[in-house]
């Protein structure tokens, strides 16, 4: 079995406060893995640690490349795209400029133009909004723009931080369908962090449960769904 990402002994801290206490986990190539957990469990921090946005220790191995000592900008160049919490679009720029910035680390002009079309293909609404300031987009549109911007990197690994946050159920369903399509059609591996466990387990094939900075349960989505504790605490039935 080939692992795309292997994380060993990952620790992360904000100033003097430690947020992760030595995580070990791995991601399969082409798979969707989800990290579940309550508020403050360290889900967002895990993603931030992978993309070098917090001070961290431990090994983060992507396809044989060690990411642990690289800067955020260099990590993106290794093919890791991060859709941050709260979308993080460039609000004063147009939607299309946001997409163009997503391809900042690439130099192939024609391929970039093609990729913009490809994103519009996944998210037709963005094409209508292409010249609109990103700050004026609705929550769902902004989230789509954030995902689209990440795709512009031609990533091999997509980190998604609470993509469903604050969106109407219908929009969430639409978004997750598209994510599923992207995973299937482009073979982009995904690491998904979600509050909405049921939703996340539907998309993911593997799952980890994180509690106060430690992994407590791991396995295939199916086994996690069947797990008593998870069902009671996170799925609510």
């Amino acid at each position: 079995m080939s692992h795309l990402l292997e994380v060993k002994g990952l620790e992360a801290s904000y100033g003097p406060t430690k947020a992760l206490h030595g995580l070990d986990f791995s991601l399969e190539k082409g798979g969707v893995t989800t990290i579940l957990g309550a508020n403050g469990a360290g889900k967002t921090t895990t993603l931030r640690a992978i993309s070098g946005m917090v001070t961290r220790k431990g090994q983060i191995n992507l396809n044989g490349t060690e990411l642990g000592s690289l800067s955020t900008a260099d990590i993106t160049r290794k093919g890791v795209a991060h859709v941050p919490e709260g979308r993080g679009t460039f609000v004063r720029m147009s939607a299309e400029d946001n997409l163009r910035l997503g391809a900042y680390s690439r130099n192939d002009k024609t391929a970039i133009a093609e990729d913009i079309e490809r994103v519009y293909n996944y998210f037709p609404i963005l094409k209508q909004r292409r010249n609109q300031q990103a700050g004026t987009l609705s929550g769902g549109e902004a989230q789509m723009l954030a995902v689209g911007r990440a795709l512009m990197l031609r990533p091999i690994l997509l980190l998604l931080d609470e993509p469903s946050f604050g969106l109407a159920p219908l929009i969430v369903q639409e978004l997750f369908d598209i994510l599923k399509r992207i995973n299937a059609e482009e073979g982009v591996s995904m690491l998904l962090v979600e509050q909405n466990a049921a939703l996340a387990l539907e998309l993911a094939d593997h799952a980890y449960l994180l509690e106060t900075g430690n992994i407590v349960i791991s396995g295939t989505s199916q086994s996690i769904i069947e797990n008593e504790t998870v069902r009671r605490s996170y799925l609510g039935y």
């Binding site: 993309s51 946005m53 800067s71 955020t72 900008a73 993106t76 160049r77 795209a81 991060h82 941050p84 993080g88 679009t89 460039f90 609000v91 004063r92 720029m93 400029d97 163009r100 910035l101 997503g102 900042y104 680390s105 911007r149 990440a150 512009m152 990197l153």
Partner: peptide, 19 residues
């Protein structure tokens, strides 16, 4: 454009590969 992005939202700018 990258300079504007870095000023407006440094975290996101880093995530698209801007130093």
């Amino acid at each position: 454009m990258a300079m504007q992005a870095a000023a407006a939202n440094p975290a996101s700018a880093g995530l698209v590969g801007i130093r």
